[in-house]
Nucleic acid binder design. Structure first.
Lengths: 207, 207
DNA sequence: CGCGAAAATTGATCTGTGTCAAGTCCTGAC
DNA sequence: GTCAGGACTTGACACAGATCAATTTTCGCG
């Protein structure tokens, strides 16, 4: 029954927006493959990167606040995704207690995640933040059965920097340091983690 | 019918915990008067302050993620609050679409808020963060009909610092600067905002 | 394959904030 | 009222990271 509410197999080319800030929240999305950037643009035109969406992750939950999306989400590489229209979802929430619990769980998780991230990033230095970012990415990839030690960054250094509250130079320097320390291999956007323990140690005790 | 599910008129003295990290999520809470600090303690024993709870605000929503609370909440001053046991709330979610939407809205709002805060804090300097903090507090007090220009901080400088990712010295210096600039009066924990426009300007375009 | 533009690296310098260290001001208890 | 201990302020200094600038690398495209 939930199946019937899901529109599968949608595609989006690189750079195109999945949603725009201010749009009415017509649907929830789940990314199936590819990745996306969640961001918003300040009045002064600066881009604030909220985070990145990986396969298996949901997008659009903040829309529950006001019925409108509050940030832009655009594809960093060709994206395939599912779409769950709110019109179909809402009636199901009445009949399926399990689905209700699942949606609440997703929201709670996103909330907890966001708060944890904020506190962690606020307390650690630049190298720690970059390590934390890599550790987080690695863990999320692993959850989807992808390699946690060999992966390709779909986002630019500038995106990473804006996400972590650093400059792109500092991100670059952190990566170079890790490389020099011998536990990370970096070639452009290809990353190899040679010693995962070093990553988690620096990342500030990420699970 | 929702009324019957709410336990009203509960009290808590200063310093006592409303919930502990790891406790099963037995209830949601809504603060009626007083204020509280939301925080967690790292493995190294450092305290990370997630935020502060003011009258009219809900606590415990992150519990939806796993069925357990994920942070400590303790009273900064004598607290009165309502308690909504999950046992009573869950059956109501089935029958009351309005309540369902309200809970989703609350969660969405908390999520959006948390993400916005993280991005804003990551990009601005120490004085901006302190101004932002005051502007946020001021706005939330105003929403409850309290004065947005004259209020008393219930939290210490150290709490504010840990919340903003600064040191207490830097918070203190920022407040002193504002005082010297003539648009804020600070006497210990009593705050008077003489020029609210200066606050919002520095705070980074807070609504 | 090679060109050009964008992305990333690396270096030099400067500034904001953390750190350490006195000191002063509150506040609550007696 | 006064005393003690914690909270807060202020100052001096060091250093991480921002900024500015110059290359180098990567990658899409003809």
């Amino acid at each position: 029954m939930l199946e019937a509410a899901v529109q599968r197999g949608r595609q989006l080319p690189t750079g195109v927006a999945l949603m725009r800030a201010g749009d009415p929240m017509a649907a929830l999305f789940v990314v199936r493959s590819g990745s996306a950037k969640r961001y918003s643009v300040t009045l002064q035109g600066a881009e604030q990167v909220h985070g990145f969406v990986l396969p298996g992750e949901a997008v659009g939950l903040e829309g529950f606040a006001s019925g409108r999306y509050t940030c832009e989400v655009s594809a960093l590489e060709p994206l395939s995704y599912c779409r769950v229209p709110m019109r179909r979802l809402e009636p199901l929430l009445e009949r399926l207690p399990g689905l209700r619990r699942e949606i609440l769980r997703l929201l709670g998780q996103a909330l907890e995640e966001s708060q944890r991230l904020r506190c962690e990033l606020a307390q650690i230095d630049a190298r720690g933040r970059v390590a934390h970012f890599l550790a987080d990415l690695s863990g999320r990839l692993a959850r989807r059965g992808l390699s946690p030690v060999e992966f390709r960054l779909s986002m630019s250094r500038a995106d990473i920097a804006r996400h972590l509250g650093l400059t792109l130079e500092t991100v670059s320097r952190a990566l170079s340091t890790f490389k020099r320390e011998g536990w990370l291999r970096v070639r452009a956007r290809d990353i190899s983690v040679l010693r995962p323990d070093a990553l988690t140690a620096l990342g500030g005790g990420l699970a």
